[in-house]
Amino acid sequence: MKDVVALVTGASRGVGRGIALALLAEGATVHVTGRTLSEAEANGGKRAGSLEGLELEAANLPGRVVIHQCDHSNDTETERVAEKIRAGNRLDILVNNAWPGYENMVEDGDFTWPRAFWEQPVWRWDAMIGTALRAAFMMSRAVAPVMISAQRGLIVNISFWAAQFYDGNAIYGMAKAAADKMAADFAHDLRPHHVAAVALYPGLVRTEAVMQNAEYFDLSNSESPQFIGHVISGLWRDPALMSKSGKVLVAAELGQEYDIADINGYKPVPLTAADFAKS
Results as ranks from 00 to 15, higher is better:
1 M>W: 02
2 K>M: 03
4 V>W: 02
5 V>E: 08
8 V>R: 05
10 G>Y: 03
10 G>N: 01
10 G>R: 01
11 A>M: 03
12 S>Q: 09
17 R>D: 02
20 A>V: 00
20 A>W: 00
24 L>Y: 09
24 L>H: 08
25 A>Q: 14
30 V>H: 06
32 V>M: 06
32 V>S: 05
35 R>M: 03
37 L>I: 10
38 S>Q: 13
42 A>P: 02
43 N>G: 11
43 N>H: 15
45 G>T: 11
48 A>F: 12
49 G>Y: 12
52 E>S: 13
52 E>R: 15
54 L>K: 11
56 L>K: 15
58 A>C: 08
59 A>N: 13
61 L>P: 12
62 P>C: 12
68 H>D: 01
69 Q>A: 14
72 H>N: 06
72 H>K: 04
73 S>K: 03
73 S>D: 07
75 D>K: 12
76 T>M: 11
78 T>Y: 05
80 R>P: 04
80 R>H: 09
82 A>G: 00
83 E>N: 13
85 I>P: 01
86 R>A: 15
86 R>V: 15
90 R>I: 01
92 D>I: 04
97 N>H: 01
103 E>C: 01
104 N>H: 10
104 N>D: 15
104 N>W: 01
106 V>Y: 00
113 W>E: 12
114 P>T: 12
116 A>F: 11
119 E>W: 10
120 Q>E: 15
123 W>V: 15
125 W>C: 10
126 D>E: 13
127 A>K: 07
127 A>P: 06
128 M>W: 08
131 T>Q: 08
141 R>C: 10
145 P>A: 05
146 V>D: 11
150 A>H: 07
153 G>T: 03
155 I>D: 00
155 I>N: 06
156 V>Y: 05
158 I>C: 03
160 F>S: 14
162 A>L: 02
164 Q>P: 09
165 F>P: 03
165 F>N: 05
173 G>E: 00
174 M>K: 04
175 A>M: 07
180 D>K: 01
180 D>M: 06
181 K>T: 14
184 A>K: 10
185 D>I: 14
186 F>T: 03
186 F>Q: 15
187 A>T: 07
187 A>Y: 09
193 H>C: 12
194 H>L: 10
195 V>W: 02
196 A>L: 04
198 V>D: 11
199 A>R: 07
206 R>N: 11
208 E>S: 06
212 Q>A: 00
215 E>R: 07
216 Y>D: 10
219 L>W: 07
219 L>E: 08
220 S>T: 15
222 S>V: 00
223 E>I: 00
224 S>I: 13
226 Q>W: 11
226 Q>I: 07
230 H>N: 01
233 S>T: 02
234 G>Y: 04
236 W>R: 04
237 R>C: 08
238 D>A: 05
241 L>Q: 03
245 S>E: 12
245 S>V: 01
246 G>R: 01
248 V>P: 06
248 V>E: 09
251 A>Y: 04
252 A>T: 04
253 E>S: 14
255 G>Q: 00
256 Q>Y: 09
256 Q>A: 14
259 D>C: 07
261 A>R: 13
264 N>V: 14
266 Y>C: 10
266 Y>Q: 12
267 K>N: 09
268 P>R: 14
270 P>K: 00
270 P>V: 05
271 L>R: 13
271 L>S: 13
272 T>P: 09
272 T>N: 08
273 A>Q: 10
276 F>E: 02
